[in-house]
C-alpha cells in the first residue's frame, strides 16, 4: 500500500497496468462516486446545462418557441450601444455603494450587541433576524408605506414635525435608489449579523484578557483585536453582499417598476424585462453573462485585497 502511494507521488505509475490501477481505485472510491451521482446529475442539469445553454443562446435568435437562428455576435455588439443597459449597470453599481458597507456595518453592530453579554440576547437575536425570514413582499409593502412620497407618509409626517419639507422618496430620481438600498439593508443585515456573531464567538478570549491586562480600552480592543481578527468574515460577507447587491431585483420590481425615469432599473430588472416582457431571451442571456463577468471580476479583486491573509488565526 505504501509502495503504491510512493509510486504515485513520485510519478512512477507505470509499475502496475492501468486496468489494475483503475480497478483498485474503483474498489476504494466506487461507493463515493455512486453516492455523488445524484448531486452530479442535479448539478449538470440545473447549473452546467443552463450556463452552457445560455451561452449558446447569446449567439442565436430564439423566442421560446420555433426555430432558432444563428446571429453571431449581434446581441453582444448590441450591448455596447444599449445606453439603457449601461444605465442599469451604473444604477446597480450605485446601489452596491449604498448597500454593501452599511449592510456590513449594521450586521457587525448587531453582532457586537448580542455578543456583548446583553440580557435577553437570544430575544434580540430573534428580533434582528426577523426581517430575514419575513416575506420580502410584506417588508417591501411596509417600506413603501413608510417612505410614501406624500405629506401624509410616515417619514414625511415626522420630517414635517421638524419643519422639513416633504420628500418624494420613491418618486424622486435622486432618492429612490437609496430608499431601495435601505430596504435591502434592513432585509439582509440579520444574516450578516449571524456571520459576524459566529466570527466573534471564534475569537480566543485570552486575547481580550491579555489586552485588558495591558490596559486597552473597548475602542482599542475593537480596532486592534476584534476588527482585524474578523478579516475572514469581512471577506466572506463582502463577497456575498456584493453578489447580492448586483442581483437586486425584488425591491425595484415591487416598489418602483424601475422608475422614475429608469433611475432604479438595475441590471437584473432590465434583464428580466428583456427576457420575459420583450421575449428577447438571447439579449437577456448576454446581459446575464455581462453580470457574471462583473461579479467575477469584483470577487477576484476582493479576494486579492480583502481575502489576502484571511486565515489570520
Amino acid at each position: 500500500m505504501e509502495e503504491t502511494a510512493r509510486a504515485t507521488v513520485s510519478g512512477k505509475s507505470d509499475a502496475q497496468p492501468i486496468g489494475l490501477r483503475l480497478k483498485k481505485h474503483w474498489g476504494k472510491y466506487g461507493m463515493v462516486y455512486i453516492f455523488l451521482v445524484p448531486i452530479l446529475i442535479h448539478f449538470l442539469i440545473f447549473q452546467v446545462f443552463p450556463f452552457a445553454f445560455s451561452l449558446v443562446l447569446t449567439f442565436m435568435d430564439w423566442r421560446f418557441i420555433g426555430e432558432s437562428e444563428f446571429v453571431g455576435l449581434k446581441h453582444w455588439i448590441n450591448f455596447f450601444s444599449d445606453t439603457l443597459a449601461h444605465k442599469a449597470i451604473w444604477n446597480t453599481v450605485l446601489f452596491s455603494l449604498y448597500y454593501i458597507i452599511p449592510t456590513m456595518a449594521l450586521g457587525l453592530i448587531l453582532a457586537l450587541t448580542i455578543n456583548s453579554g446583553i440580557r435577553f440576547a437570544g430575544i434580540f437575536k430573534g428580533i434582528f433576524f426577523l426581517p430575514v425570514v419575513t416575506s420580502f413582499v410584506i417588508i417591501a409593502g411596509i417600506w413603501g408605506w413608510i417612505f410614501q412620497g406624500t405629506e401624509t407618509g410616515l417619514v414625511n409626517s415626522i420630517l414635517g414635525v421638524f419643519g422639513i419639507d416633504s420628500q418624494l422618496f420613491l418618486s424622486s430620481s435622486g432618492q429612490a435608489l437609496m430608499v431601495l438600498a435601505g430596504l435591502s439593508i434592513l432585509k439582509v443585515s440579520g444574516s450578516t449579523m449571524i456571520y459576524y456573531f459566529a466570527g466573534l464567538q471564534s475569537i480566543p478570549s485570552q486575547l481580550y484578557e491579555a489586552a485588558k491586562i495591558d490596559g486597552a480600552g473597548p475602542v482599542r480592543i475593537f480596532w486592534s483585536i476584534t476588527f482585524p481578527l474578523l478579516k475572514p468574515i469581512h471577506f466572506y460577507v463582502a463577497i456575498i453582499t456584493t453578489i447580492g447587491s448586483f442581483q437586486i431585483f425584488d425591491s425595484t420590481f415591487l416598489l418602483t417598476g424601475g422608475g422614475p425615469n429608469y433611475s432604479t432599473t438595475t441590471i437584473v430588472y432590465y434583464l428580466y424585462q428583456q427576457g420575459f416582457a420583450s421575449l428577447n431571451l438571447s439579449y437577456a442571456a448576454v446581459l446575464s453573462y455581462i453580470l457574471f463577468f462583473i461579479i467575477l471580476i469584483i470577487s477576484l479583486i476582493q479576494r486579492k485585497y480583502i481575502g489576502k491573509d484571511s486565515s489570520i488565526y
Binding site: 413603501g144 412620497g149 406624500t150 416633504s166 418624494l168 422618496f169 418618486s171 424622486s172 416598489l255 422614475p260
Partner: peptide
C-alpha cells in the same frame, strides 16, 4: 394628483 404619483402603484389608502 398626489405627490408620489410619479411611481405610485396604488392610492387606495388616500
Amino acid at each position: 394628483i398626489p405627490e408620489d404619483s410619479i411611481t405610485a402603484m396604488a392610492h387606495n389608502e388616500q
